[in-house]
Structures are given as structure tokens and as C-alpha cells.
Simulated assay, not measured.
Amino acid sequence: MKTISKIILLATTMILFSCEDILEEDITNDTIQTVSPIEKDTISSNVVNFQWNIIKGATNYRVQVFNENLAVVLDSLVGNKVSLTHPFLPGTYKWRVRGENAGYQSVYSFPVGFTVVQSNDLTNQQVVLSNPISGLYTNSTSLICTWQDLIPADYYELELVNVTAGQTIILQQSNITSTSVTLNNANLAQDAEYLWKIKAVNATSQSVFSNRNFFIDRVNPNQPQNSLPANNSTQTVNQPIAFTWTMPSDAGTIQSQINYTIEFSNTTTFATILQTSTSATTMIQQSFANAGDYYWRVKAVDAASNVSTYSTAFKFTIN
């Protein structure tokens, strides 16, 4: 009977581990048809829009671009979509694409050559933004926005929008001849989601706005509160202990993602930190090999680098 049970358990395990591969469609011999750019295309823009046809069974697509020396200048895994826009310097390139899923990869499409040339017409060009990254959370009172120089541009125009306040434009600036702007506390007075937008302008044309968002959050997280193990509890040596705590709701306008730092000490003042752990949830498990008295506390750190006060320390004894 035990032998039969083991066989059933082994078979079940094999099914579970291989289930994903069984469900994935074999696309090994499939080839993607590219749509744009086509062979010998000349693109009068600083950005190239790659497009291809979907293949059944692919959950991702990998796009590769080579320069005239056959060096890889782009190797990008995009999601379940059939286009990718990317900036390029003037030059000659080749591109190809393949489909992928968790178990298989298709063959690459036949390489397609294209040329990027510089144009003074900004209509179909884009300003390539550098920093800050999209979706940044920060508590800073000063933020430097930078972008790549677009050679045909005479100058740039900036708009800063408070999205939280209802798409309110709080700053407009033109005739910017550098490739950076510093936003100060006067511009970023409120905790909010902001959108910064840049476009290039010359005597005959202008680009569309390129934009990214960021979040200003200057409110410290609330103080965590220890839950378990209860204060002055007794635990067993070398046995996992679940440490849990609660976190009051964030009252700030922007609720940044919170992570936790948990500290263990053998002194009430935490003069000596025996171990530090981090967690994205309000629980960790920890065991202790040595008997004695221990103390633990937690602090919260949000994505904008705001830090709470430590929770009130709890004591526990290992026997």
C-alpha cells in the first residue's frame, strides 16, 4: 500500500512540474512575418517603430537589432504585443524578431535592413527622456529632469502637470537650450502624481510631447505595531517562529509601496543588532539556535524613502 501511495505521489509531482510545458504550444518551427520597417526602408526620424505579425502560442516577442558591424545594439523582450518603438542614431541596421513562451522559442525572422537618417523635420521625431525613470517615487524637494539632445531642435518646451489635482498645468517653460531642467520645491510643493512633458522645436516644425510620470510623497509611514509572538513569550530553540505586525493605513495623498526592516537584538536598547531582515509583507519566519532573551522591532520604509519610527520592541525568550 505504501509503494502504491509513493507511485501516486511521484506521478502527481511529475504532472504538476510538467503541466506548464504541456499547456504551452510548441512554436519551435514557426516563423514571424515582419511588417515594418521593410527591407531597404529609409527612416527620417530618430525613433523606429518595429511591427510584426502575431504567431499563435507566443506570449512574448524578442526583438534584436544589429548595426552595420553586426554588433547587437538592441535585445528587447516585449510582452504580448506586436510593436516596439526605440530611438536610434543615424546609421544602417538590421532587425529580426522571434516568439517565445515558457517552454519554446520560434525561429527568428529573416533579418531586415533599414537606414536611419537625420531630418530637420521634427514632426515624426520624439525627444528621448533619460531621468527620472517613469513611475519614480521620491520625497525630494528638487528633481532634475534630463533628456537626450535632438540635433535638429533649436530649443525645447517643458510642461509640468499635477495629475492628482486634475491635470493642472503648474509650470510651462520654453526656449530651453540645454537638455535638463531642475524642478524645485516651488514647483513640487504638493504631494502628488506629476507628469513632465518635453517637446523639441525648430523654425519649421515641432515634435509631439514626450512624457513620464513621477510621484512626490513626503509623508512618513505610520509606526508599525508588533503582534506575534506576544511580548514576554517563550519560544523553543531551533523552531520557526512567525513574527507578525500590523500597519495603520497611510494617511498621505500618495500611498507608496512599503517594505519593512526587522531587527533582532539581545539588548533592550538595540545597541547590538544580531540580525536584520527585510520583508514586503507584515510577517517573517525566524528560528534561533541559542537559548536566551531576545528583542525585536520593525520599521517601515516606503518607495519614496520615507521612514517610520520603530515599533515598540517586544521581548521573547528562547528555551
Rank of each mutant, 00 (worst) to 15 (best):
D121N: 15
T138G: 02
V116D: 00
W95L: 01
Q105P: 00
I151K: 14
Q118G: 13
P87M: 09
D75G: 11
S140G: 08
N60E: 13
Y156V: 09
S134F: 03
G79Q: 11
E159Q: 15
D121P: 01
A102M: 12
V112Y: 01
P152M: 11
T115A: 04
Y104C: 09
S140F: 01
N162M: 11
P111T: 06
T141W: 06
N60L: 09
L143F: 08
P87G: 12
L122F: 13
T146K: 11
V107R: 10
N67Y: 11
V63I: 15
L84Q: 05
I55D: 04
L129D: 03
S106H: 04
V78S: 06
I176F: 08
N139V: 08
A71F: 12
K94Q: 13
G79M: 10
W147A: 10
S109W: 03
Q118Y: 00
P90Q: 07
C145R: 03
P111V: 02
G135W: 06
S174A: 14
N101S: 09
I144C: 02
Q167Y: 10
T177A: 06
S106F: 04
S83Q: 14
I151P: 13
Y156L: 10
T85I: 11
L143W: 07
R96D: 02
N120M: 07
V161K: 04
V73C: 08
F114W: 03
L89N: 13
V72Y: 03
N162Y: 05
D149C: 05
P111W: 05
N67Q: 04
A71D: 15
I169S: 13
W95P: 04
N139Y: 01
P111E: 07
K56Y: 13
S119V: 07
T115V: 04
L77W: 03
L129I: 11
S83W: 10
D121K: 11
L160K: 01
S130A: 12
R96Y: 08
G103V: 09
W95V: 01
T92A: 10
V82M: 07
S83Y: 14
Y156W: 08
